[in-house]
């Protein structure tokens, strides 16, 4: 575990989480959630939980992003609230 590296990733995690909540463009928010997933995957890999990191990279960053984009395609692209 490298503490400065962890802190940098955690700061970026908070930033991406806040941005994905604030962005009105749903496609953009989905992309930022994908970045969030990759960051948390990086954090887990760095802490030694490689199996969990692998699952997060495949499910969180890969497939669920595709699912959300497929859903956004059938709704409106911009959030109303």
């Amino acid at each position: 575990m490298i503490v400065p590296f962890d802190i940098i990733i955690l700061i970026f995690l908070v930033i991406t989480a806040l941005i994905s909540l604030r962005v009105r463009d749903l496609l953009g928010a989905t992309m930022i959630l994908g970045v969030y997933s990759f960051l948390i995957c990086l954090l887990w890999a760095e802490m030694g939980a490689v199996d969990v990191a692998f699952t997060e990279a495949a499910v969180g960053a890969g497939v669920s992003t595709v699912f959300m984009i497929a859903t956004i395609y059938h709704t409106r692209r911009h959030s109303s609230d």
Binding site: V50, D51, A53, F54, T55, A58, V59, G62, V63, V66
Partner: peptide, 21 residues
């Protein structure tokens, strides 16, 4: 090595999704 049924299954499913995309 890291991996197993869940990860492999997701990757295999994603390859079919890639065909659809």
């Amino acid at each position: 090595s890291p991996g197993g049924g869940f990860q492999g299954g997701v990757i295999l499913g994603a390859s079919f999704i890639l065909v659809a995309l």
